[in-house]
């Protein structure tokens, strides 16, 4: 699900940009360490492949059809860092050329699909990459990548105050589950057909990584997904809990009216002060994002 501009409240899209920029900078450094510079065009071609593969429809029954989304396929063939970069590039092109997903919301979309989605796709495979468990692990990864991305997107929309009633949430979560299963089935089917042509398409993970860390991260993603699923299945429950903890009022202020209590002095009209405070906050957030991203990129580059 690509979130367009205008859906997320300012604190949410700014925070997601703040989270996505350093993650992508880090992944870009990692991917550059793993691949030869002159192979960069190949990543672009694989991105174009994911785009084009979406034109090929898989019959799902009841007259509907689905298509490949691609994170898991890229993660097990190119490696996780390169897959994240390719997915990021895909999201950039979708936002710019196809108006599929917003530009301010790009951080959110990149984080949901290219960072968390690819990580969720890769972790099960990282844990069980050989023997009989390999294909189920790839299925699980593809399944989790869709679910993680979708659930994060829903959580961001809810935090932004976009209303989705119980029924709508229920129906869309059901659809996400179906899409996730389908992505798993399609990914495994495509890998089977690839391996019928040449057996070594799927790249074995480099075993130097820390397995425990991977397992922990996988568990964390799973927990977060399940937690949000449960919480959004019963949003009133979440609110009740928050009220009991005495944070509901504060949290609501934090999430819906940024800087509402901080008006700049020296402006005659109330609304002008509010507007100026909002803009100042925005400039501050954007500048911090840019500076942090640059600093981290430079640190990694050094």
């Amino acid at each position: 699900m690509h979130i367009p501009d205008g859906f997320l409240s300012t604190p949410v899209w700014a925070a997601m940009n703040l989270a996505a920029a350093p993650s992508v900078a880090y992944l870009a450094r990692r991917a550059q360490r793993e691949i030869d510079d002159s192979r960069i065009p190949a990543l672009g071609v694989m991105g174009a492949f994911v785009f084009a593969a979406q034109m090929i429809n898989f019959p799902v029954g009841l007259g509907t059809s689905g298509h490949l989304l691609g994170s898991a396929l890229l993660a097990v063939t190119l490696g996780p860092a390169a897959a994240s970069i390719v997915m990021t590039a895909i999201l950039v092109v979708q936002a710019l050329i196809f108006q599929d997903g917003g530009v301010l919301a790009l951080g959110a979309n990149v984080f949901n699909m290219a960072v968390a989605g690819v990580a969720a796709a890769y972790l099960p495979y990282r844990l069980w990459n050989s023997g009989r468990l390999r294909n189920p692990a790839i299925f699980l990864g593809a399944f989790l990548s869709v679910l993680a991305g979708a659930v994060l997107a829903v959580a961001e929309l809810l935090l932004s105050g976009v209303r989705m009633g119980q029924t709508v949430l229920g129906v869309s979560l059901g659809l996400f589950l179906v899409t996730a299963v389908l992505e798993g089935v399609i990914t495994v089917a495509v890998i089977r057909s690839l391996e019928a042509m040449r057996p070594n398409w799927v790249r074995a993970p480099d075993s130097s990584g820390r397995l425990v860390l991977g397992a922990l991260a996988g568990a964390a993603i799973l927990l977060a997904v399940v937690g949000v699923l449960l919480a959004s299945a019963d949003p009133d429950g979440l609110e009740r809990l928050a009220e009991r903890a005495g944070i509901a009022a504060r949290a609501r202020n934090l999430f819906t009216t940024p800087l509402a209590d901080y008006q700049l002095r020296g402006f005659g009209a109330d609304w002008l002060g509010k507007a100026a405070a909002g803009l100042a906050g925005l400039v501050a957030i954007t500048a911090t994002t840019l500076v942090l991203g640059k600093l981290i990129a430079r640190r990694r580059g050094a």
Partner: peptide, 27 residues
């Protein structure tokens, strides 16, 4: 400030989008 790798992959992706989409039509 976008990492160079992303900017490059975006360009190559766009350049080959036309070619690979045509191939996808054949497939």
């Amino acid at each position: 400030g976008t990492p160079r790798l992303i900017a490059l992959v975006v360009q190559f992706l766009y350049r080959y989008l036309f070619v690979v989409s045509e191939q996808a039509q054949h497939m």
